[in-house]
Amino acid sequence: MSESLEIMIQLLIPLALVLLGLLVGSYLERRHYVSIREREEATRHTPVVNLRKIQHEQPIHKSYLVTGSAVISVDYFKRLLAALRNIFGGRVVAYESLVDRARREAILRMKAKCPAANIIINLKIETSTISKQGRSGERSVGCVEAIAYGTAIHYQPWEQAG
């Protein structure tokens, strides 16, 4: 009797964590995507390009480095999905959205640093992880961090330029 109870508990706790990850995780992700789309729409007037030089007619007033970063964590459900995927191989959709969120969030934060800029050029995105899975297989925090950086450019207003 006590043995079966022990097995039940051992099975139930991971199951509860996975369920929690599925429910709360997907809710958080949906909310995050809504906020990302809203802010992308709001900052559409500032183009971000990864060109080093741009064609421009107005003289440039000033330019400076802007950066933005975000660290996004996986949830237990996604981890389970990815572990299952590891058996058969193929696209890990659960992790694709994770990296996508981190990068878009980083770009948005970078844009938020220079709301008055006309354009951001030479965008570079750096992606890495702070902590990897331990060698001995111990649990560690699975997350991706994205850094976006570029050069913000302000054009000189026409009146001053003339």
């Binding site: 958080l28 992700e29 995050h32 970063s69 975000a70 660290v71 949830d75 997350c143």
Partner: peptide, 23 residues
């Protein structure tokens, strides 16, 4: 805190802060 947040996913604010500070 990050370990707890890891269950449900989402942004790890502490790590983002750390990253920004070290940058």
């Amino acid at each position: 805190m990050a370990g707890l947040k890891n269950i449900v996913g989402g942004e790890l604010k502490g790590y983002t802060e750390l990253l920004a500070e070290s940058r």
